[in-house]
Amino acid sequence: MAEDVKPTRKNLMEIEDRIELSERGHDTLEQKRDGLIMEFMDILDQAQDVRAGLNEDYERAQRTINMARAMEGDVAVRGAAAALKEHPEITTQSKNIMGVVVPQIESSRVKKSLDQRGYGLLGTSARIDEAAEAYEQLLESIILAAEVETAMKKMLEEIETTKRRVNALEFKVLPDLYDNKEYIEQKLEEQEREEIFRLKKIKAKKEEEEKEQEEAEKAAAKEPETVVADD
């Protein structure tokens, strides 16, 4: 990896910038992860309570419908259910928890009064009322559980993503950047040393040449002058 980088001063500066940015990002992501975990723990407690309530409501609803079917007959229970007109509705909105978009589910027409259930009062019994009421309660619990558990799953996914990013920065990106930085620094130092050595060599060579030239000049000056005779 480090060998792929050109050991230039420009690259070194770029890598130093990236290291600074990655360290800042790492700290921020670590803080985000810890914050998300704290939020998740709160939601987890809530989800556990909601789930326990949901199980209880389900048991109760099953028991009341079984009793109503046993005592009033399946036909009577189905008949009372068929009289229902206003079916429950849900609308979903979203809210933001530390950057995670989680659903907020609003339900309407789930809990109904005796006159809104559609069946006549004179020909039915309290068992059917109780079964209807238990199922309305169960439906409310299901809607609440859907909201809380979806929020929990989304938070968990976000925690996982953030954790992966923190780990990637901590164990991959930053070590690679440090390796690259070290590699470039070493290379640059080496280049510097080579340069110095080279300059020293050139200097020595130059000095030698100068010395040789000087000696040659000296030798020339020592030779006797020769007069050339005129014809």
Partner: peptide, 16 residues
């Protein structure tokens, strides 16, 4: 109203 309650009650009341 669109709900069966009045008709169901009318039937039961007529019987009683």
């Amino acid at each position: 109203t669109g709900v069966l309650v009045p008709l169901e009650n009318a039937v039961d009341r007529a019987f009683y």
